[in-house]
Amino acid sequence: MSQTPEMMEGAPLIRPSSTGHPLYDTVVEACRSVYDPEIPVNIFDLGLVYTIDIADDNAVTVIMTLTAPGCPVAGEMPGWVADAIEPLEGVKHVDVELTWDPPWGMDMMSDEARLELGFM
C-alpha cells in the first residue's frame, strides 16, 4: 500500500535540505530541542529528521521519520517539531511530514548520539 510516486533511478532516497538558507541553522537547533521522552538523544542527532526544506518565502517543510512504525509518539512528534520551529523569528509556516521511506536505522545517528547511547 505504498503511495510513493515513481522515483528516477539514481535519485537520492532522502531529499536534500536547504543547508544554504540563512534560517537553516536555527531550524536545526530547534529540532535539537525535541526529544522522544524515552530516548536521551534529541531527534536531530538521532537521525529522525531527513529533510529540512526552507522555501524562498521562509515556509519550512520538515520530512521526518520515527524509530519504527507503530511508535506510540507517532501522533505527537510532528506537533512537537512544528511547535519548536514555528516561534522562530522569520519562519513563516511549518509543515511536518512523516515518512517510513527509507526506514530509520542506527547508522543514521550522529557520532554524538552514538557516543551518548554507548555505541562508541
Binding site: M1, Q3, A68, P69, C71, G75, P78, L98, W100
Partner: peptide, 19 residues
Amino acid sequence: IAVYIASPPVPGADGMTAR
C-alpha cells in the same frame, strides 16, 4: 499492523489523527 500498513498517516485527510 503498523509494520503491515507501513505508510504514514495522511495528516488530517480523514479527520482522524494517528493517535
